[in-house]
Design a binder for these strands. Sequence first.
DNA 1: ATTTAAGCCATATTTGTTTAAGGTAAATTA
DNA 2: TAATTTACCTTAAACAAATATGGCTTAAAT
Lengths: 207, 207
Amino acid sequence: MARAKKLTQKQDAILNFIEKFSIENPFPPTLKEIAEEFKITLGTVQDHVFAIEKKGFIKRFPDVARGFKVTRPGDNKTQDMADMIPIYGNVAAGEPIFAQENIQGYVTMEKNKAGHKIHFALKIKGESMKDAGIYDGDIVIVRKQDDADNGDVVIALLDDEATCKTLKKTKIKAYLEAANPRYKAIMNRPFSIIGKVIELRRGYVAA
Amino acid sequence: MARAKKLTQKQDAILNFIEKFSIENPFPPTLKEIAEEFKITLGTVQDHVFAIEKKGFIKRFPDVARGFKVTRPGDNKTQDMADMIPIYGNVAAGEPIFAQENIQGYVTMEKNKAGHKIHFALKIKGESMKDAGIYDGDIVIVRKQDDADNGDVVIALLDDEATCKTLKKTKIKAYLEAANPRYKAIMNRPFSIIGKVIELRRGYVAA
DNA sequence: ATTTAAGCCATATTTGTTTAAGGTAAATTA
DNA sequence: TAATTTACCTTAAACAAATATGGCTTAAAT
């Protein structure tokens, strides 16, 4: 079985350069540009690139200018670009949540292949989800959807206020549960789900 | 004032192709590839590309193969504001942490705040920081630095293994503390700090 | 009515980029 | 010890790709 061999130091450095270059520029480098970076000759770069390819870390497109593709074994994720998605502050009841004035900033997120504006972010207020590791001030990234599965952490609209809770579904009914013993479950009030939490982010840099 | 003019249908189609091609391949197309796609000649493509550039939707790099950059005047929020930083897996003692083979993926991060390659990300293993809201499988974003303040969550090198702990500093000595009563503080072993945790990310999408 | 822009074409030239083919030396592996 | 791998080199040739000219037609703008 073609097990992925390890790269040598030099090969690793060159792979690094190719990747960095590809991120900082809209295209991969040429062999010559690699040669210049490392102050070696074209022929030497050929050898290195060939070796790196043989070990399976890049794919080459024959006769194609800048024809590299970094294919780290075990990572099929195409890292193209990022989207900026808005962070909405938690607002008082009655006020519109998705208002332009309510945007507190942006976070970056890997671009999703399909949907476009289906994500947004929300700043968490309060301690009701503390036992699920979601703290006051944390930011959750939400995928818009009007239903979710049992046990999902969701953003629900409750009396016109957005709240973060765990969704519980029984055969009889659905309800919202906090992750903090000091809060009780919300059983008999109407709510609607506006999205599912797909990621949590917490900053440690002092405000 | 050079206001951004609108593209014609044809120009828009070509711009779209360039963008799509750049996403589906690791490099932008050549003029010839565009010509083949639209069944027009090279010269015609030159005209179109020149027009598109003049209207500010792409940037061209002179004499550079595949030297395109799509710069839609609308989404300046997208590209230039994010950096891709690598996620390193937690490795066994003795093995190099910052090796290419150890990169498990990438996360996006807002650019600037600080310098360039001073950030990396690490996947957390274990429950030792659970009471600080850092769970197994979470990803922490780390700023490289060899010292930190009392109370900072840091990544430390302990017997050649990277570990996430809270740094405690007394007048007498510095030590590492877990955030889980089942783990005791690491008091009398040598360690070095490799970075400070500045952000936490947790994915909720099913594995 | 003249100019400008949009779409097209063809050909030639220059530059960019990859590929080919050979060689040297030191370190590692069989 | 012989064979392989790594890391370099040089030179030439082939191919890829961008650029330079120049010319054609139609529709819209001044």
